[in-house]
Nucleic acid binder design. Structure first.
Lengths: 166, 166
DNA sequence: TTTTATGCAAATCGTTTGCATAGAA
DNA sequence: TTCTATGCAAACGATTTGCATAAAA
């Protein structure tokens, strides 16, 4: 919400281009859903996205949100994630930089990180076993510093997503 | 399923012990389901387990299989995995040695491996970000040697599970 | 006008649960 | 006997789909 950044505009433009390429129609619903999605910086579930879009455009249906999220996924503009809670979560896909996740089992906080040494070792292991890797998923579960110190108690609903390069 | 191995018997005994500890009853259904589960060496889904159990004991219900799998999970005798296909898969949990997965996107083959260097780096990254890790999940997706050479075409339904230590 | 998208409700899929009955302790 | 487990069917929550209508091209 609020100010729109350059990167959001770029993504939105990419979305419009993707629609044209596929001969799909631009609609106000798709635009609203995409804009809300690109404006969020957390791992958002379809339900959360639906609720946020409804505050802008109260008549959009659940199915349309699902269909649009699928579209965003197919255009590589959204990345699907499955953590612990049954429902899928989506994040803005930055084609350039994939990342991994560190998840606090107490408060639900999610920290994103990358580590090149680990990536290199993954390649090495795969090569040794005859595989050529196209992608990977790595999730570390534990307890964050705040929770261990007892400072934080509530579930972290919306974790800001900044990738830490370690 | 032929010969029963020592390790299967040990697991089955551990299961019986776990039932006693919890004041739960031993039933023929639980025994059958557990035995079939311990006899399998692949990542089995509830549906597959149900079908196999039905060949032994045709009157068990789906719900009982679900309930027993949940029980096995709670006793740390089964480990739950979520790959790509919507349904949960379970494997025999060997408390001693956790492992990671290498998954072929062509044929579905799953290779299990461990790598201590990667584990050490995971610890290091988590520490740097203030976390204490309790467990992790790492999945590498790619194409296996057989599929790249065009030798293998069909989906590998039942991958034998031997952990490779790299 | 032609064609695709939407919104709703119904369908689906994996999984869980309520309840009357069967079986273990 | 007492109490838990089973099997069935119904309930569930996340996601998808059929269809008549609305909107884009």
């Amino acid at each position: 919400m609020g100010v729109r950044s350059r990167i959001q505009d770029e993504r939105f433009a990419a979305f419009k281009r993707a629609l044209k390429e596929r001969n799909l129609k631009s609609t106000s619903q798709r635009d609203d859903i995409a804009r809300v999605f690109f404006a969020t910086n957390r791992h958002i579930s379809v339900e959360e996205l639906y609720n946020e879009v409804r505050t802008i455009s109260p008549r959009v249906g659940y199915a349309t949100v699902y269909r649009t999220v699928r579209l965003l996924r197919e255009c590589s503009l959204a990345a699907e994630r499955h953590f612990h809670d049954g429902e899928a979560r989506f994040e803005n896909a930055e084609q350039e930089h994939h990342h991994d996740h560190l998840i606090c089992e107490k408060c639900g906080k999610i920290v994103e990180f990358t580590n090149n040494e680990i990536e290199d070792l993954q390649e090495a292991v795969a090569k040794k076993l005859g595989f050529v890797i196209s992608r990977h998923k790595m999730e570390l579960y534990g307890v964050c510093a705040e929770c261990r110190s007892g400072r934080r108690v509530r579930r972290a609903e919306s974790a800001p997503a900044r990738v830490v390069h370690t």
